[in-house]
Design a protein around this nucleic acid. Structure first.
Lengths: 116, 116
DNA sequence: CAGAATCCCGAAAGATACTG
DNA sequence: CAGTATCTTTCGGGATTCTG
């Protein structure tokens, strides 16, 4: 059904708009990058992404989870243990990360050239 | 020199942060996509990106220009004519656009599957 | 440990009106 | 045509506090 999630724009129609929404999160790319290497616990991610705050990390993770990129696994132990890993859709994002990383380096080199 | 452009984060150090800044513009990807095909005038872009507003389009273009991705060419004619095209750095972004487009389609397919 | 709940703030987008 | 100038609004990120 076309409910409230109809949003207002081309989300769900145009690949670029779709991607933009997912990637607009400040830490999204970093999170995907780290999870690409291996499954991580909440605390491990928090440390890797320092100085991110707990609240922000939670939001970013929820966002990526809702978009189907990551999987959240809860272990009912004491103390609690929650692991995050990439879903299939998340792993399929790898090519984007790779090309993005390469371009980012080109960009940085470009900036250094015109130093200022 | 490390002036005010030092910002506050890893911009200029980490490729992902760098990319994130550039791509965070709501229309950035679309603009790059259209300019990848051919040079366009302001009005042409505006039509292609409808319902974007003039003010917003101007901001997005200035942003991409400052980041060195696009080139702005002004013809002193009446009426005025301004053309936008990709710089070398902009063209080097192509692989990202391609991989992003492919993933975006996977994402859309994924959403349709779990329809809701 | 892994969060949830609030509050706050700045940046970005949109709406609108005006101009060389 | 290709903007600029304002104003308003929205939204996401960060800080802080509390909890099972």
């Amino acid at each position: 059904m076309n409910n409230e999630s109809e949003k207002k724009d081309l989300f769900g129609i145009c690949p670029y708009f779709t991607s933009q929404k997912v990637l607009s999160g400040k830490w999204a790319l970093l999170i995907l990058h780290y999870l690409e290497e291996k499954t991580l616990r909440f605390k491990e991610l928090e440390r890797a992404l320092a100085p991110i705050t707990q609240a922000t990390l939670t939001k970013q993770l929820r966002n990526l989870e809702e978009h189907g990129l990551i999987t959240r696994t809860v272990y009912n132990t004491i103390p609690p243990k929650v692991e995050y890993s990439l879903s299939e859709l998340g792993h399929q994002f790898k090519p984007v990360l790779d090309s993005l990383e390469k371009w980012g380096e080109l960009y940085i080199a470009h900036m250094e050239r015109k130093d200022f």
